[in-house]
Design a protein around this nucleic acid. Structure first.
Length: 658
RNA sequence: GCGCCCGUAGCUCAGUUGGAUAGAGCGUCUGCCUUCUAAGCAGAGGGUCGGGGGUUCGAGUCCCUCCGGGCGCGCCA
């Protein structure tokens, strides 16, 4: 609702200034520090003052009385050195916000498609907290985009033919001397991803002990890429089993996908050949005949500099003819935009708990009723910021092909890594040097098997939540308590990963992550539960049960009464809650524009905090004045609805009881 | 060496195209449960926004510079 008012004010003001002063200026708006000063302010007169060479305060005083009426705006004042401050019609805002609710905008079926690629875990070991941050950020951003009416396709890229899978294959074959059948049995076990986590770390050690063993990896990788022998068979087996483990893990926190594109198909269907032909055709790659890159196909990244003699270039095809990761990524990015003259075949792979189907790519025999994947108008790649160099090269590749618009619309949705706080690393038994102990954080290494596994963390969160739930509601059915503990655990985890801005390194710490108090997901859920309790008890009163049976709040309150309860000064505290509750749309829009899901997390917490404060000060069920009680109920309803909606966008569900 | 990011309260972090008196959580201390659930609320204390210079009506925010820290820069992915 707030955003609607903001837009009205911006448009009206811009038009007014154009007509009266002949000036085109973008109108910035902000929230005044206190509601005494109004609800929406603009410093536009300062900008105007510069252009017209007049005093800002004088201009503001001249403009304020002349502004045309704006629906929802009661009056204007001039404040400070020349702010124009709008005072909203409180009762109208309350009514409109309550009526508008928090419904998502329906996407147009023909709207341009946005592809969001996230998760992308190497299918050779269990997921860890770093992967959780990726998935939670990506998933939340997808929810925000869909809520604002965008058509979104979620892709989770599976690098099933890479070095990491090859290493685990080497582990099974040469470290453990397993046969395919042995591995097949292991892969059917529930914690196969944990098994591979340890094996992968052992393989890393195995290579370090004797560098000559790397040859094993190279042979294995080649067999996997070309798809022959026991190695390829094992790689397929392992990667598919691990992908299923990852999907299970992500389903625990409410993350779902549309498509799993696999590297094996990019190879088999010769996506690279098509991309390479394009790159050659348009002169975007050159064959190096001399220098350190002799024998390779490279993409020049800068003009040859006479001073340095060696222009910057990225190798796309190695001298042995194999394609680098970036090369394959360029091909994949081209496919996402529908710029590659080929497509995958698709098969159903899995059904999420919601009933949604996840598709996987195939090289042949696709199912005929598969949706049309790819052909995006915009692509977000959720990848940690350590890969920004490579993401830039992918975009440079598109530009080199002349696809400037698609390069612009290739967004690296970057976020900083999740490391461990030194305390946490020591808790986990990793030895630290004196120097590391003084650091803000220490990096984990999947290669060495250090880090916090996603499922372990979730188990701990659920156990902790379960203990809290059991202490409060020992007599409730077991299944209900388990479901609530799960909802609380998910909320704690998702909020913890979403409250940090993307460019903040998260120094993971069990104490913070396992907390259910203060700025946490459970705190936000608790506010919703408190509101629900009020309605449950209110509806249980004999005189109300009839009206509340359909879940809708039916109380009688005239606009005049609402206006009276919201009037300053006594009504200010209510008005501030109304205003905040009515600002979800503005928070979501800001989050989408800035690509920063943390904005919505912060908003949810603020609203929960404001509601808890209100809850504490006003006892609704014992309110004697019927009109006042009706008002308080409506206010509670508004705050609850908006908070619930904000939480759903964060992937958090409030349980009935806590 | 080059590139990107960060430096705000004891700790962890917000601070939306530059805007009004810089905020929150945790921790510390003090109060509040016969009340709609205390996973809560209220209060106290805590700041040269890393240092210096500049831009302007106005800088935590933009520019320059220095200091400190993180991450990249491979015929790995």
């Amino acid at each position: 609702m707030y955003q609607v008012l903001e837009n009205r004010i911006r448009e009206t003001l811009a038009q007014f200034l154009r007509e009266r002063y002949g000036i085109d200026v973008s109108i910035a708006t902000s929230r005044p520090p206190k509601t005494d000063l109004g609800e929406i302010a603009t410093p536009v007169c300062f900008e105007l003052a510069r252009r017209l060479r007049r005093a800002p305060r004088q201009l503001a005083e001249e403009i304020a009385p002349l502004l045309p009426p704006i629906p929802g705006v009661e009056r204007w004042t001039v404040a400070g050195g020349g702010y124009l401050n709008a005072y909203l019609d409180r009762a109208a805002f309350f009514r409109d916000a309550s009526l508008a609710g928090a419904a998502a905008r329906a996407p147009h079926p023909e709207a341009p498609k946005i592809v969001v690629e996230h998760t992308n875990i190497n299918p050779n070991k269990a997921a860890h907290i770093g992967h959780l941050r990726n998935a939670v950020l990506g998933d939340t951003f997808v929810r925000l985009l869909r809520h604002t009416g965008h058509r979104v396709e979620v892709q989770n890229y599976i690098d099933n033919t890479g070095v990491q899978v090859a290493d685990v294959v080497v582990g099974f074959l040469h470290l453990e001397n397993r046969r395919v059948e042995d591995v097949r049995q292991l892969a059917a076990q529930p914690k196969f991803d944990f098994y591979c986590w340890d094996l992968y770390a052992r393989v890393t050690q195995f290579f370090e002990e004797d560098p000559a063993r790397v040859e094993l990896r190279n042979r294995t990788l080649k067999a996997i890429e070309e798809g022959y022998g026991i190695e390829a068979e094992l790689a397929e087996l392992i990667a598919t089993a691990i992908v299923r483990c990852h999907l299970r893990t992500m389903e625990r926190i409410g993350v779902e996908y549309d498509l799993l594109p696999r590297e094996s198909e990019i190879l088999r269907l010769k996506f690279w050949d098509a991309a390479f032909a394009l790159l050659q055709q348009r002169g975007a790659v050159v064959y190096a005949t001399s220098g350190k890159n002799a024998g390779c196909w490279v993409m020049p990244l800068s003009e040859a500099d006479e001073a340095t003699a060696a222009p910057e270039a990225k190798i796309l095809v190695r001298s042995n003819g194999t394609v680098t990761y970036v090369g394959k990524d360029i091909a994949y990015q081209l496919w996402k935009f529908g710029l590659l003259d080929r497509d995958f075949a698709y098969r159903r792979f899995h059904t999420h708990p919601s009933g949604h189907t996840v598709w996987i790519t195939a090289s042949e025999a696709g199912e005929p009723d598969a949706p049309r994947f790819g052909r995006a108008a915009q692509v977000f790649n959720v990848i940690d910021s350590r890969q920004s160099y490579l993401q830039n090269i992918v975009a440079a590749g598109l530009r080199a092909l002349g696809y400037h618009e698609q390069a612009e619309r290739s967004v690296h949705f970057a976020y900083e890594m999740v490391a461990l706080s030194p305390r946490c690393a020591e808790e986990l038994g990793y030895p630290l040097s004196e120097e590391e102990r003084r650091r803000a954080h220490v990096e984990v290494s999947g290669r060495r098997g250090t880090g916090v596994k996603a499922d372990d963390l979730l188990d701990r969160l659920e156990a902790r939540a379960r203990a809290e739930v059991d202490a409060r509601h020992p007599d409730d059915p077991d299944a209900e308590r388990a479901a609530r503990a799960h909802a609380i655990a998910v909320s704690a985890l998702r909020y913890y990963l979403l409250k940090y801005a993307r460019n903040t390194v998260v120094a993971f710490d069990f104490k913070d992550a396992l907390s259910f108090e203060g700025e946490t997901g459970p705190y936000c859920q608790y506010a919703v539960v408190r509101a629900r309790n009020i309605f449950r008890k209110w509806a249980a009163q004999p005189t109300h049960s009839a009206t509340a049976a359909d879940g809708r709040l039916e109380v009688s309150l005239t606009p005049e009464q609402a206006a009276r309860f919201l009037a300053p000064p006594e009504g200010n505290e209510f008005w501030e809650l109304v205003l905040l509750a009515g600002s979800l749309d503005a928070a979501v829009e800001a989050a989408v524009v800035a690509q920063e899901p943390a904005f919505v997390a912060k908003y949810a917490f603020q609203l929960a905090q404001a509601f808890n404060n209100f809850y504490h000060r006003h006892h609704i069920l014992t309110e004697a004045d019927a009109a006042r009680q009706a008002f308080l109920l409506m206010l509670t309803s508004l705050a609850m609805q908006q908070l619930e909606a904000a939480l759903v966008l964060l992937g958090i569900e409030a349980p009935e009881k806590m």
